[in-house]
Simulated assay, not measured.
Amino acid sequence: MKKLILSAAIILGSMSAFATILPVQNPQNQSVLLQEEYTEVQAEAVPQAIKTAMEKAYPGAILGKAYINKNKEYKLEITVGDQNATVYADAEGNWINK
């Protein structure tokens, strides 16, 4: 009887020796923000269509700086009253949400 209990204990002990805990993998989301290259242009170089759209959408806005990228999209830093904003438009004066 002692040999039976001792054998059972050895067998159960050896089974637990090979039990391993698997590491839990937490999925991680990575986001990559690609910064578009804009080059500064003079305010006079901004197309009239954009200036007209700006006057219509933001009455009294003052154009501070203007930038353009390779897709002919404009980044405009404007001041309306005492607030500063950055808006984006294409060459035809259509607003772009970024």
Results as ranks from 00 to 15, higher is better:
42 Q>W: 07
77 E>W: 07
17 A>R: 01
88 Y>C: 00
10 I>E: 07
39 T>K: 11
54 M>A: 13
89 A>Q: 06
59 P>V: 08
55 E>V: 00
60 G>I: 12
23 P>K: 05
79 T>E: 15
75 K>T: 12
72 K>G: 09
73 E>W: 01
38 Y>C: 09
72 K>R: 13
11 I>W: 04
35 Q>E: 15
37 E>T: 04
53 A>F: 09
79 T>Y: 15
59 P>Q: 11
35 Q>N: 10
57 A>G: 09
33 L>K: 08
31 S>V: 13
1 M>S: 10
84 N>V: 15
36 E>N: 14
56 K>I: 01
66 A>K: 01
89 A>P: 01
95 W>K: 07
72 K>W: 11
78 I>Q: 01
46 V>P: 00
13 G>E: 04
22 L>C: 04
15 M>D: 05
32 V>Q: 03
57 A>C: 04
67 Y>I: 01
7 S>R: 07
81 G>A: 14
7 S>E: 11
21 I>W: 04
63 L>S: 03
74 Y>W: 02
67 Y>H: 10
34 L>H: 06
33 L>Q: 05
43 A>S: 06
51 K>N: 02
88 Y>T: 03
37 E>S: 06
5 I>F: 15
94 N>T: 03
17 A>E: 00
74 Y>A: 04
89 A>F: 10
49 A>D: 11
29 N>Y: 11
8 A>G: 12
93 G>T: 03
85 A>F: 13
13 G>R: 02
87 V>A: 15
17 A>D: 02
24 V>L: 07
69 N>P: 02
3 K>L: 05
